[in-house]
Amino acid sequence: MYKGKPCAGPDQNTDDATYWRQIQNSDRAGMEGLYVKYTQELFRLGMSIKGDRSLVKDCIQEVFLKIWQYRHTIKATDNIKLYLFKCLSNKIHKEVGKDKKRYGHLNAELGDDLHYEQETEVGNSLERRKSLMEAMDSLSARQHEVIHLLYYENHSYEDISVIMGINVQSVYTLAWKALANLKKRFVLIGLFLMTFLA
C-alpha cells in the first residue's frame, strides 16, 4: 500500500472531515484521500519511533486497514491527523514490544531519512554529521519520538501527549531528558576533540 511518494489522485485540499465521512459511508475515495495526504508524515513519524522501514510501512498499512475494517463503528474526531499519528505510534510500540530482541534498537537506516535536515544545519562535515547521528541514536525510542514530533513535525506538547498517550508533564520530562542527553554527548565530544587536537 505504501508507495513512497504521493500519487496523483485525491485533492489534498479536501477537508479531513469530508474524507472521514466518506470512509464512514464506505466510499474508498475518503480512505485514498487520507492515505495520500498523510502517508509521508506518518512515515517520518514511524521512522522516528523505530528505524525499520518495513515495520513502519506495514504499520501504516495496518492503521489504514483497521480504519477501513471498522469504518461503520469509528467515531467522529475533531483532529484526524492526530488520530492517525496516535494510531501509528500505538501500533509501532505494540509491534516493537512483541519482539524486543528483533526490534530492540534503532536501525542505522534512520540516519539517511531523519537526519537529512540536521545535515544541512551542521554543514557538510562528515564527522559532525556522524556525531549528531550517534547522539540521536543514543536516545531511547520515546525520547527520539518526542524530539521528532517537537522539532520535525512542530507539534505542541499537548498534541504530543495525545499522540504518545502520555500526560503533558511526561512529554516535557521526555523532551528535557532527550535534550540534556544530546547536550551532554556533544559536550563530551567537544572535550575529546579539544584534548585530542591540543
Rank of each mutant, 00 (worst) to 15 (best):
Y38C: 02
R21G: 00
H72M: 05
M31N: 08
T77M: 03
N124H: 09
F43Y: 15
H93Y: 14
Y19K: 10
R28D: 14
K98L: 07
Q22V: 02
Y151I: 01
F196Q: 14
K57Y: 09
D78S: 13
S48R: 15
R53T: 14
Y35Q: 10
K3E: 06
R21S: 07
Y151G: 12
E32V: 14
N154S: 13
Y83A: 03
A180R: 01
V146R: 06
R44H: 13
T173V: 09
E127K: 08
K94C: 15
A76L: 03
G30C: 04
L45N: 12
Y70H: 12
N25F: 00
F192D: 15
T195Y: 04
I49W: 10
H115F: 12
M164G: 00
V56W: 07
Q118A: 10
H115P: 00
K57S: 07
K184E: 10
S170V: 02
I60G: 03
Y38H: 15
G97Y: 01
E62I: 03
R142V: 00
D137N: 12
V96L: 10
G111C: 08
R128M: 06
D27K: 06
D16G: 11
G4A: 04
G46F: 13
V171W: 05
K98H: 12
L106M: 10
S161Y: 01
Y152A: 07
K3D: 02
K100Q: 11
T14I: 14
T14V: 14
D159G: 01
G33Y: 02
M1T: 10
L34W: 09
V171T: 10
A76N: 14
I67G: 00
G51Y: 04
G33K: 03
